[in-house]
């Protein structure tokens, strides 16, 4: 593996609905899975993630937190979590 690839800095921001908010898409997917005959699937929740490559680690987490709460998620309805990949 070359050094450049090794040094890539990528963070992943996960976004999902807060507890208690009905997600009709996840419900519809769950109903379809039920109709496929699977008996043990209890609940499905859906989310999304963004992989964000950065060019410098300066202020990274602070910036990512701000980007995640200001734009990528809507704090009224969604939670976010940032992990280093």
């Amino acid at each position: 593996m070359n050094l450049r690839k090794l040094l890539k800095m990528i963070y992943r921001v996960y976004i999902n609905f807060k507890k208690g908010i009905l997600d009709p898409e996840a419900e519809a997917i769950k109903r379809t899975i039920d109709s496929m005959g699977y008996k043990t699937i209890k609940k499905i929740s859906k989310g999304k993630f963004f992989d964000i490559e950065i060019s410098s680690s300066k202020n990274t987490l602070g910036d990512l937190e701000k980007i995640s709460s200001d734009l990528l998620s809507n704090p009224i309805i969604e939670n976010f979590k940032i992990i280093k990949k």
Partner: peptide, 10 residues
């Protein structure tokens, strides 16, 4: 205030 999200029946 608030948010406008997917209609109940999508």
């Amino acid at each position: 205030d608030g948010a406008l999200i997917d209609n109940y029946k999508r």
